[in-house]
């Protein structure tokens, strides 16, 4: 039953991706609007799927790669839809929708597999740690995307070229706000996620901090986000610098989440 929901959501993500890309190619708002609705239904069905999984597995909806990716796709689409309601930034959808779809493709590889969860990963703290961290990371991903779009748009307006392309992108002010709100919300989520993780690490590994490469990378990027928030809130940073820093911080975070294992030996390999 839950697999069916995953498949329907998958299809809906696919359709909205096609729709968004088509809307850019033929420049028709109607198609983009329809795509937003399709994405919305994809999100709704995806929500049902995740709820099902949650009930089925008992306590933790996010344990393996399949679930993590599908969860990230869910958070990203959900946040985008929330922004869509607040600001007219439909074009962001043509970045978010394909991303969510790609995550779903990779996630579908592990579809339906019932993984026996190792004892070390059982417990409420793991669930809280993974859910909060992944939600925070997803918001940072969105912030990074808004930041990239900001830099593109900034460059187009500065260089006074390609007005046609610049017309497709949202206004700088909106992009900056999305970037800010995503960091603002993502930061406490990641912070709590890290705290939950360290509490649990103490119970399993005996100490809160292991100097593991993954932990180090995450903490570095956490400091970068903290710095960014401070500059924004206290100094009044806006625009380009904030965009650049949010992209840079996300690259490090991404390395912490997926890249570390290829280069270092880590005890946190999940």
């Amino acid at each position: 039953m839950d697999i069916l929901f995953f498949k329907i959501a998958f299809l809906a993500y696919f359709l909205s991706t096609i729709g968004y890309i088509a809307s850019i190619l033929v420049r028709r708002v109607v198609i983009a609007k329809t795509s937003t609705w399709i994405l919305f239904s994809a999100f709704a069905i995806h929500t049902i799927y995740i709820t099902f999984r949650w009930v089925k597995t008992g306590y933790n909806p996010v344990t393996n790669l399949h679930e993590s990716l599908s969860f990230i796709a869910w958070v990203i689409s959900g946040s985008y839809l929330a922004f869509q309601m607040k600001t007219k930034t439909r074009i962001l959808g043509s970045f978010v929708s394909p991303l969510a779809f790609m995550l779903m493709i990779v996630a579908s590889a592990g579809l339906g597999k019932v993984v026996s969860i190792p004892v070390i990963l059982q417990g409420w703290w793991v669930a809280i740690h993974t859910i909060l961290s992944l939600a925070g990371e997803s918001l940072f991903a969105l912030a990074c995307m808004a930041g990239i779009m900001y830099l593109i748009q900034d460059n187009l307006i500065k260089k006074k070229k390609s007005y046609r392309f610049s017309r497709l992108l949202p206004p700088l002010g909106d992009l900056d706000r999305i970037n800010h709100i995503c960091v603002l919300w993502g930061f406490p989520l990641l912070t709590l996620g890290i705290i939950a993780g360290s509490i649990w690490a103490r119970t399993v590994w005996g100490s809160r901090w292991q100097c593991d490469p993954k932990q180090v990378c995450t903490v570095i990027s956490w400091f970068l986000y903290a710095f960014l928030l401070h500059q924004r809130l206290a100094i009044g940073w806006k625009g380009k610098k904030a965009a650049v820093l949010s992209i840079f911080a996300f690259v490090i975070l991404l390395f912490a989440v997926v890249g570390v294992e290829t280069f270092f030996v880590t005890m946190h390999s999940f």
Binding site: I157, Y163, P170, P171, L172, G173, D174, R177
Partner: peptide
């Protein structure tokens, strides 16, 4: 679509920068 006078073009740009 798109401004065809200098003053409208300026307004269009302002919207592109500030949004609202």
């Amino acid at each position: 679509n798109n401004a065809v006078s200098v003053s409208f073009a300026a307004v269009g740009l302002a919207k592109k920068i500030f949004g609202n």
